[in-house]
Structures are given as C-alpha cells and as structure tokens.
Design a protein around this nucleic acid. Sequence first.
RNA 1: UGGGGUGUCGCCAAGUGGUAAGGCACAAGGUUUUGAUCCUUGCAUGCGCAGGUUCGAGUCCUGCCACCCCAGCCA
Length: 558
Amino acid sequence: MNETVTKYPANFIRNIIEQDVAEGKNSGQVVTRFPPEPNGYLHIGHAKAICLNFGMAQDFGGFTYLRFDDTNPLKENAEYIEAIKRDVAWLGFKWHEVRNASDYFEQLHQFALQFIDEGKAYVDSLSAEEIRTYRGTLTEPGKNSPHRNRSVEENLDLFRRMRAGEFADGEHVLRLKIDMASPNINMRDPVIYRILHAEHHQTSDAWCIYPMYDYAHCLSDSLEGITHSLCDIGFEDHRPLYDWILDEVAINAHPQQIEFSRLNLQYTVLSKRKLKLLVEEALVDGWDDPRLPTIAGLRRRGYTPGAIRDFCRRIGVTKSKNNVELAFLENCLREDLEGTAHRVMGVIDPIKVVITNYAQGRVEDLKVANHPKDETLGTRSVPFTRELYIDRADFREEANRKYKRLVAGGEVRLRNAYVIRADEVIKDSRGEIEEIQCTYDPDTLGKNPEGRKVRGVVHWVSATQCHGAEIRLYEPLFTVDFPDASDQDYHDLINPNSLTIKQGFVEQSLESAIVGQQLQFEREGYFCLDSKLSSPDKLVFNRIVSLRDTWAKIESRQ
RNA sequence: UGGGGUGUCGCCAAGUGGUAAGGCACAAGGUUUUGAUCCUUGCAUGCGCAGGUUCGAGUCCUGCCACCCCAGCCA
C-alpha cells in the first residue's frame, strides 16, 4: 500500500498552503497567528482555530504568534491574558512569541498619519447616531459626511489633538475615505480610530485614541510577516477592507486572509458573551465549571489535550455551517483514554453485600491488573473482605434472562475476585434493600467455576477497606441540542440535571490518586479528581464521560 | 429587495470531468472476569432542484430554490 490513509480529512486551507509553499510564495514560509481578544476564556471553538493555526505552521515548518487583539481597553482585562496562555499551552502548542496589537500602536498611528497625508483618511465629527444614518442601509447607499473633504492640514491637526486628549470620547473619529456607496457596508468609510479615555492593561494611559479591529488586524498581520491569516467566516466581507488597507499603505507583506466556519457543538453554547453571562450570573461554578465547553472547563472535567486536538482535526475545516454531535467529541475522548487510563473500581450508588461464609476480619489482598490489555501498566492490590459494596443497579430480586447481573438466588462474578451467590435480601421497614447476604465460591479466584456458567460481572469495593468519595455526574448543560438556534431564552433551556452529586465508595488505592490523572472506574466510565474541590480529606471525582452503555440502550427499548 | 457565503448518508467530511473515500452514529454477529475494548458485516444507482454541454458531470454552463452572515465609535 503506498497511499497514506489518515483519519483526518483533507481541508481547503491546507491545500492552499501546500500549493503556496510548493510555488515558493512567501519564500516557502508559513507564519500564522492566533489572535484572541483578552475579554473572556477560550472555548472548544477557539481550540479548533488554535489547532488549525498552530497545526498548519507546525506541519509546514513555520511558526505561530500568540497575539492579543487588545484594541478595546473597555472590554479587555490582563487576567484573561494569563488564562489564555495557560489554555493554549495546555492544549500542547508553543507560540513563537507573544505579541499584542498594542505593541504596534505607535506604528499604527504612523500609518494613520500617512493615510491622512495622502488624503485617504479624514476626521469625522458626526455623532455615532449620525454616522449610522449616513451609512445607509443594506439596500441603500450611504451619504458622504459633511466633513469628508476637510483639508489634509485640518485633518492632521484634528487627529493630533484627538491623540493629545483635547476631545471627549465620541467627539471625533478617524475614518478611511473609501466609498460611501459601496454595496459592502464595510467599505463605507470605516472608522479606524475612536477616542477612548480609558486605561489600557498594556499601555496604561499612553493613548486615548484606539484603533479599530479592521485597521489594526491587517496591519498587525503584515508587521509580523504573517503569511496566512486564518479567521472566522464572519470576517469574509471584511476581506476587501483588509486588502484595501494593505494595498494602500506602504508596507511590503500582504498576508492572505482565509476564512473558515466556526464550530457548533450540540448541547452547549459557544459564544463568549453567553459563556460570560453563565459565569456572571453564577449559573455555573466559574469559567472552569466542568459543564462548560471552555478549555478550562474541559480540563477540569478531565478531558485530555490529545482528545481535543484529535477532535479538532477530525471535524475538518470548511466554510459550510456545521452541527457537530456531542457523541463525536465523546468518542475522541474515549478513544484516547481507553488505552491509557488505569482501571479501578468505585461504587457510585452503594448497596451492601455480606459474604456470610467469609471470615469476619479476614482481608485478602488481591493482585489486580491496571489494564486488561496492557501489562506494562502494572498491577495493584485490592483488599477483599466479608463486607462489600456493589452498585444498586447491579442487583435485582427478579429479572429476566437478559439481565446479566446479580439476581436473588443467582450467581455473579465479582470483577477481579470470586463468584458469589445471593442467598437472602434484607430490607428495612420501608422495604428498601439494606443488604444482600451472599456466599462465595472460594474456588473461583482467577478461574471459572466448574460445571456451570456465570454470565455476569459486577464491580465492587470492600466496605471496610475503602474511601468514601463524592462523585459528580454530569449531563449536558442544555436540554436542547442547539440552544443558540432556539427562540427561547437560554435560561429556560438549562438542564436542571446537569450536575448530580453522589456519595459513593472507591477502592483504597485511590488515596494516591492525583489531580490531572484520568482513571476508568470499571463498568462506569472515566473519572478524575476535581482540581478545585478534591482534597486528601475529601475525595471528589468528576465523571469525565461514561462508558458506552449497550445495556442501557437495550433496556430503554423494552 | 444590496453585498458576501453555503448546500455530498442522521452528524462531520473527502472528492478539482472518468463512473460517490473515511470517521461518528446506527444495525447485526463474534471474542470478552468491564453489557467496555477489540474484530467482522451492513448502511447515498446518488451529491439542493431543473435544464444543458460531454462518450462520460457531485465536479463544467444556465436558470431556479433553501439556509447563513453583514447596517458597533465590538472583535
């Protein structure tokens, strides 16, 4: 076989870059940037952009800048910068350098002067409302501002005074002189500088005029020698402006802007604004709530960087709108964890089992494999005692043949241990099962009983040699697959069962569990210690994702 | 109704004129001390619709239709 089969689809951006490199464009160099605005936390939608930008540069031997698009001091905050750096690094990417759009304020200002000088920019003194009116509508052309033909001298003077702080916010703006009748609204004399008497987290009070995105972004790209400027499809009709600015200004590098569609993922929201609201309204436990699609939330939930990267590459890169199923993400996670996560046992909804023919006080240390297929992951010791816990769902007083667990009078295999038989069920006054009395077959450790077949396997934990643990089970934060597409207020779409807290028991070895380690609780799912809530005194586990559950599917059909 | 986009299996997505990849999901079977994993098999006579060009069209042409984005001194 000479064809390379990968699980990753080809994508049009890679094709473009590949061709550019082959043709020796930009001397065969590939330089990209990831340009977040420090006004919120990164989410999995950003992860897609991060993987693309860093991934392309990596694959073609180039590099990537992490650039903070900090042109609006009113909305930005230095705290977000640290969080963003942490998230990008955690995802496994190394930036060439950190840059800020604010690093270029001086140069951007020089370019503005040049635009004015050449009669391509003017100071407008219309109010924001007037500018909106003059801009026209989607179907009607705009009108020229009465200030459009101010002399170069007057513009220069006004702009100098804007910068000097002689005017209040909103009194004047600097606009590019393009075409008020353009069918593309972005070309109708876009504002490129506004007055903002605001402290900037990087430049402090050095400036009271700030450049707008459309102006700062293309020039920053060019100044950094970016070859391919990959962005959200929402900027598609900004591209003519991006190109106009770089064509008009005396600058040699003209990066190519290429747009791709943003990720939409089922049962969550991927807009910074809505995520911020969820956090601010305390509907979740901060930006790193395990139910959130933020990188910080996914990390705390237990997702691995590798699984997220795999997901981002597998979903592909196109310009078409997409609605990615949650199952797809979960599959990437399970696939990653299957081979690496150590297996342990934990009982989430405990019910007591007493082995009546097992001596009181006896403790057997069972040697148990940490992984069913990978011996190199080693073994551990699990104590077996007279009193145990199994999960409530693993016992029924009566059941049909399809139920392969413990049934009154029947047998079941205790995972990694003996076969037991349920002899008697003891209930409390309300009829709730209090304990199940069983007998074990001492001749079934590591081998099947003779003459009969035991069909089920059930996980367990010693009731006397274990740790209590809080176990947090998660469901999607929203009840509908695409809350953004709903007419209803998203507050009404929040899933009341998104978090369920259980008090269970985990095997003794988990006292040495560490934050950041993913474990499989056999037959239950993948879990990890909660980095925020767990402590040596009180173990708190998050369920990252459940195991695939064919039985639940069969059962729900009946 | 101006401009810019997008339409290939339930979802994602290859395909760049030569006779519809792959993944997820789903279904059926096998292995199994996790109803997990793993393995096998099935799953688009059709690519928004209608015409046309061609020996041949998802790919080219024409005309429709549907959906998305744009009127911040936000990014």
